[in-house]
Computed example of a mutant assay.
Amino acid sequence: MALQQYPLVKTFIVAAWLEAILYGIYFCGFWVGVYLNIRMKWANNQNRIINLTSIIMFIVATLHVSMNGFRAIVGYVDYGSAPGGPVSFLGVISTWHHIFKDDLYACQSILGDAMALPRSTVSGIAITVLFGSVNPNASIFDPRLAHWITIFYSVAVAQNIITTGLMALRLWTMEKQSARIRVGGSIFMPLLLILVESAALYLFVQVLLLVLYAVNYNAQFILLESITPVVGITFGMIALRLILRSQRVPLSDDQATVGHIALRRIAVNVTTQMEHDIPGDKLAPV
Rank of each mutant, 00 (worst) to 15 (best):
M1Y: 15
L3I: 15
Q5L: 01
Q5T: 00
P7S: 02
I13W: 06
I13V: 09
A16H: 05
L18F: 07
Y23A: 05
Y23P: 06
G24Y: 03
I25G: 10
F27A: 14
G29V: 03
G33I: 00
V34K: 01
I38E: 09
K41Y: 13
W42Y: 09
I50P: 09
F58W: 00
L63N: 14
V65G: 09
N68Y: 11
R71M: 11
V74C: 11
D78V: 12
Y79Q: 04
A82L: 07
G85V: 08
V87D: 06
S88C: 01
F89P: 05
L90F: 00
S94C: 03
H97E: 14
H98F: 15
I99F: 01
D103M: 13
S109D: 13
G112W: 10
G112C: 00
A116G: 10
L117V: 10
L130V: 01
F131H: 08
N135Q: 12
N137Q: 13
A138M: 04
W148T: 07
I149S: 15
T150I: 04
I151P: 11
N160F: 11
G165E: 01
A168E: 01
L171V: 00
M174G: 04
S178K: 09
S178W: 03
R182K: 00
G184P: 10
S186M: 01
A199L: 14
A200K: 04
L201E: 08
L203Y: 04
V205N: 06
V207C: 07
L210M: 11
N216F: 08
N216K: 15
Y217V: 05
A219W: 09
Q220I: 07
L223C: 08
P229E: 03
I233R: 04
T234D: 05
T234W: 03
T234N: 04
A239P: 09
L240A: 02
S246I: 05
D253H: 12
G259N: 02
A262N: 06
T272K: 14
Q273R: 11
M274D: 12
G280E: 13
G280S: 14
L283I: 01
V286E: 14
